[in-house]
Each structure stands twice: as C-alpha cells, then as structure tokens.
Amino acid sequence: MTLDSEETRAAAEADAPGFVQQHPQGTLVIDEIQRMPSLTLAIKATVDEDRRPGRFLLTGSSNLLHHRGIQDSLAGRAASIDLFGLSIGELHGRKDDLVGTLVGSLKDSAPASFSTNWERRRTVDSICAGSYPGLIQLSGRLHSTWVDSYLQRVIERDATDLRTVYQPARLKSLLRLIAANQSGELVKARLAEQAGLPATSITAYLDLLGSLYLVHTVEPWTPNLTKREVGRPKSLVTDSGVAARLNGASAARLQDVSSADHLGGLLEGFVTAELLKQQTWTSEPFRLFHFRDRTGAEVDLVIELDDGSVIGIEVKSSTSFNAKQFTGLKFLRDNLGDRFLGGVVLNTGQRGYRFAEKLWGLPVAALWEPLSG
C-alpha cells in the first residue's frame, strides 16, 4: 500500500486499526509512511497484540523519526535500515565488501597482486551516473533534467513534511555549497554566511538535508593520538551523480587531467558512499570516520572494526602512487601499533602496489572486485 495514493490515505484516516490489520497472515508493506506518520500509533497497538516479526515493512523517502506528526517512535518494535542507492557491485552482479576482504588480504600479498580492467574513464562515468535506479540508465540532457526535477520536488515538497518554516532557495543554495566542497570539513559559520542563513538556523537546515537523505556526514575520529585533533565532521552529497550535477561537472570535463582537483572531492564522496552502502551488509561490521589534527596529519577515511582494530583509507584521483600519498597512513601505523591492520591508498589506476609495511595502493575498483581469485 502506498500513502502517495489519496484513496489509501483516506482509508487509513477513516479506520487506522482496520487498515494496519488488513493482511494479518503476511507482511504489509506501507510505502511513503511519512505522508501519514500518525499511523505509527495504530501499528504500535497491533504489534503489541501480536509480536510476530516481519508483519510490517515501512518505507519512505525521508526520515520518519524526524517528522512533526509522528505519534510513536516504535522503539523496541522496529529496526531502521538506511537504504542507499545501488552500489557498483549491485549494478554489476558482484559481491562487494572491501572491508571484509581487506581484513584477510592485508595479512598477505593479495593487494599488491590485484589488477583490474576497470579504467579511470569508467570510474568517472560511474560518479556522474549516480546510484538512483531511475537515474543510472539516463544520459545527456535527460539525466540532468531528472536530477534537477528530483531536487526541485524534494526541496519544495518533501521538505514540507519535516519543516513548515524554511526557505527552499536557501536550502538548495546550502546543498550546492556542500556539493562544491564535497567530502570537505563542515564549517557551519562559513556555510551560514555563504548561504545567507542566520547562524541560528544553519543546524536546522543541515538536519533537514540529512533527514531527506540528500546529505551525509562522516564524524571525526578522535582517539587521542595527539592533543590537537580536529573535531569537525565531513559532509557530502550522498549521491555522486547529484553532487556532480550540482557542481556542473560532466564526465567529459572530469576526464580532463586539468580537472583532477575537481575530481578529487567527487571521487572521495563516491568512495565514501560505496563504503556506506557496503556497511549495511559487510561480513566485518565497521564504523566510518575521518582523521585530521592541526599538525597536518590527516586520513580521508578511518575504518574502525568492532574489536578496535583500524584500517586507513586515502582517496586520490591520480593513476599512480607516490610517497606523499601515504604520509597520513604512516602516521596512523606508527601511532596505533597492533591496532593498525593496514592502510590503503585508492586511486584511478589499474594495478595494486606495496609501498611499505602494512601500506598498500589499490585501484578504486577494489571496492567491488575481489582482491584475489
């Protein structure tokens, strides 16, 4: 049942208990639940009467828990799963679990022996295509029109379900600014000034973009390795195709070597999003952070496993490796001791590389291709 349908909403409003109990022996899927968050009270009542799991699947295009009309959080009665766009592995029918694979592979020479036919061009094309099912098959002007229309509808219509008082133009301006600094540190005061927002409103606007699943943040990793660690999160537009469109970056432009700096942030955001997707099914549960301190040591992504061990990831748009790219990873290795499983520089090349003890280079295709046969 979809609550986008006026008939369905009318039935749910007329008899909420009867509506949620109409498929007692199976699973009732209620799509766009945010259209009628008050329905959670009836769902809670029927779940309390019959605790069999799997009776309901509630889906929506914004975070139900952030809606003004929600009457019950369903705490203890429901589990929440963030559903990202399609991963590259899903699109190509491959099992993609970089972290699960690395845990075993970093103990031997598998990374150095890895090679791929996946070229830089295909990575750029994947970034610009994005991950939304309705978007990935489109190209050219139709692709751009789809993104523009999607953002217009989400910002001008869906956002009203979450917040009645906001300015759509400033919300979109804020989204553009985040895309322009894709995978950069989130400095609220600077964003508020650039977007023309009062400093007191910036947090609410950022939360709104997060609730619409347009923006994701990566929290800072602060393990007290130094006393000068920076505690700001990084922010990114979650879908790489949307981020590229907001930047006015076409695949042809990004293929140009002179656009390498522009590609860097988009590539890091793309890698981050792929890892966020894989985080929902990985064989090795992990948390994702970034690290930087005021002495200059930084690592794009820090993966912390449940046992406290750490894998560092650097993302570079070049097709070759050099010593400078491993500086932050060496810092982690030398300060973490046995906790440090290994560090990897991901780039747009096609061959694996051993730099030093516990430090490797890999093509970005390792995210979705097996490291060994």
Rank of each mutant, 00 (worst) to 15 (best):
R170L: 13
Q182S: 03
H216V: 11
I155T: 01
R228G: 08
L177Y: 10
K172F: 10
L151F: 09
S240Y: 10
A179Y: 06
S173Q: 15
R232W: 12
T203E: 15
P168E: 12
K227E: 14
I155F: 05
V215L: 13
R228Q: 14
K172T: 10
L151E: 07
Q182I: 05
I178T: 03
K172Q: 14
S144P: 00
V187K: 13
K172W: 08
A243K: 07
L171T: 04
A180F: 11
D207R: 06
L186D: 01
V165T: 15
P220Q: 08
T222F: 01
G184C: 07
N181T: 14
S149H: 03
Q194Y: 12
A192Q: 04
T238V: 14
S144M: 02
G231L: 08
S173E: 14
V165Y: 10
G210Q: 13
Q167N: 15
P223E: 07
L206F: 09
D148P: 00
R190E: 15
A192E: 00
R190F: 10
V215T: 09
E156H: 10
L191G: 04
V230T: 10
T238C: 08
Y166T: 07
L151Y: 08
L174Q: 05
L162I: 04
S211Y: 06
A195F: 08
D239T: 07
G231D: 07
L212G: 02
E185W: 10
T226A: 11
A159F: 02
L177I: 13
S211P: 00
L175W: 07
V154L: 09
T222W: 05
V218E: 01
L174G: 03
I178Q: 00
